[in-house]
Simulated assay, not measured.
Amino acid sequence: MRKKKNQFVRGLELTAYAAEGKSLGRIDGKVVFVERAVPGDVVDVLLTRNKSDWAEGVPVEFISYSPDRVAPFANTLVYAAAASGKCCPTKNNWFLNNSRYMTSLPALAVWR
């Protein structure tokens, strides 16, 4: 039997940052990675890849925005490509990026 493609999830709350600039949410124990969103957003998501324990998707509609979200600094299309990941303030980006590396440090210490 064929798997269903492009399923729709309503009201997914994003709770954390993941690798490659994606945000992370959970639904029924399954991890969902969402592009172009910030932790704290509540979104309706169209799933593009759906595996047994994780899924990837894109936001279709934003139900509510995160309080950490800020407007991008560029207006033109040329600069918008470079600024597409800048939807969270700099101080939070520093903390969230470093927290990802700090969680992997204990594994590196054991590797020695």
Rank of each mutant, 00 (worst) to 15 (best):
M1T: 11
R2D: 02
K4N: 15
K4H: 12
N6M: 10
Q7G: 14
Q7V: 12
V9S: 08
R10C: 04
G11C: 02
L12A: 13
L12G: 08
L12K: 07
L14S: 10
T15F: 01
A16D: 05
A16I: 01
Y17Q: 10
Y17D: 09
E20H: 13
E20M: 13
G21Q: 02
K22Y: 00
S23W: 06
R26Y: 11
D28M: 05
G29I: 00
K30F: 00
F33W: 09
E35M: 05
E35Y: 03
R36M: 02
R36F: 02
R36V: 01
A37K: 10
V38S: 01
P39H: 01
G40K: 04
D41G: 01
D41Q: 00
V42K: 08
V45I: 12
L46Y: 07
T48N: 00
R49I: 07
R49N: 08
N50Y: 09
N50T: 12
N50L: 09
N50G: 08
N50M: 05
K51E: 14
S52G: 13
W54D: 12
A55G: 14
E56Q: 03
G57R: 03
V58C: 09
P59K: 13
P59T: 08
V60S: 11
V60T: 12
E61G: 11
E61D: 09
F62L: 12
S64V: 08
S64Q: 10
P67R: 04
D68F: 09
V70I: 07
V70M: 05
V70T: 07
A71R: 06
A71E: 07
P72R: 08
A74W: 00
V78A: 13
V78Q: 08
V78K: 12
V78F: 11
V78S: 09
V78T: 09
V78Y: 13
V78R: 14
Y79F: 09
Y79A: 13
Y79P: 08
A80P: 03
A80Y: 06
A80S: 07
A82N: 10
A83Q: 05
A83E: 08
G85M: 10
G85K: 13
K86T: 13
C87T: 14
C88H: 07
P89D: 07
P89L: 04
K91Y: 11
K91R: 10
K91F: 10
N92G: 04
N92Q: 07
N92H: 10
N92E: 10
N93Y: 04
N93C: 03
W94E: 03
W94G: 02
N97F: 07
N98C: 02
N98A: 03
S99M: 03
M102N: 05
T103F: 00
T103N: 02
T103H: 00
S104M: 15
P106H: 04
A107S: 15
A107G: 15
A107L: 15
L108H: 13
L108I: 09
A109K: 15
A109W: 15
A109Q: 14
V110D: 15
V110L: 13
W111R: 01
